[in-house]
Design a protein around this nucleic acid. Sequence first.
DNA 1: AAAGCGTGGGT
DNA 2: TACCCAAGCTT
Length: 356
Amino acid sequence: MAKKRENCNSFPPQWQALWAERLIAWHRVSGRRNLPWHTRDPYRIWLSEVMLQQTQVTTVIPYYERFVAAWPTVEALAAAPLEAVLAAWSGLGYYARARNLHRAAQQIVRTWRGAWPHDPKQWAQLPGVGRSTAAAICAFAFGTRAAILDGNVERVLVRLFGIATPLPDSAVKRQLWQIAEALLPESNAAMPEYTQAQMDLGALVCTRGTPNCARCPVVEWCAAYAAGNAAALPQRKARAPVPEVDWTLRAYRCGTRYWWVRRPSQGIWGGLWTLPHADEPPPPGTWQHTTTEALPPHRLTHRRLRITIEEWTTPPHLCYDSDSPAAGRWASARDALAWWGLPRPLAAWAETRAVS
DNA sequence: AAAGCGTGGGT
DNA sequence: TACCCAAGCTT
């Protein structure tokens, strides 16, 4: 439909008609192809899109392969215990994605019953699927004409139009969505490769640090290139300093086993197994403090964690399994890693205790 | 609307 | 080093 093009007049029509053609032609020669999720299976595309949120391709690949092997269909994923899904996700970060993925799988099985909708609006009602992810899924799986706006597209468009407003900025965001929709190709058949081409242009050519404008298929239309400031865009608002947080965790050790607890489902490392905080109730027994160890500082997006681990022990004949299994579980460091995975800093700590 | 949410890699 | 960024979403 030409309707969407009428209400966006911020760029010249003489090149807007060629935009998708140029990107697709470039992608055929220089784009990324044969990634594991390049399929028409909506389940696998959805899974990959969620994993790829704020996460690089090379990081995702091994996780994706393990997920597909463990749960080849959405029905299998929906039937899995959440704990198993979180374990498979551990190390990938942003664990709300795993919880949402699991909930969404159950929603899909229950409400869609094997009939995948081709409308991004329906996908966007699933937990963990926003506007851009929904559009990418439908474009790849069904050729739906829907615009994505990820970090790549944002950077490309900001440079293309020489937008100097510091980001994030809601007005600019709205404008970019409008432009992205206006630039869509006419045909459904072009959508999968067009969508991949946009992502690849940002990831391979129009990169953050030193964009390779010499290899850009649309450089002649780029305002930032013309002004010689492509590398300086997009501008960013200053960020608030990241607060430091001190956590004291306790490694209650009974023989070779430690006492593990599950974190609340909200907040940092939601739903993952870790060592308990010092102010949490200890397992049954009489405990004595032995050693204190500081882990290397761990940086999260909005916190800088300084974790201290106190080891506490008890004579082996005085510790026993809890009567209330919900409180925590005993496991060796090796088993904890194998069964649940652990947040990165705890996984590193556990590995030092798992040898021998 | 702005803050919260992981981790690995690049400069 | 200390940022920034990566196929963003949720509240």
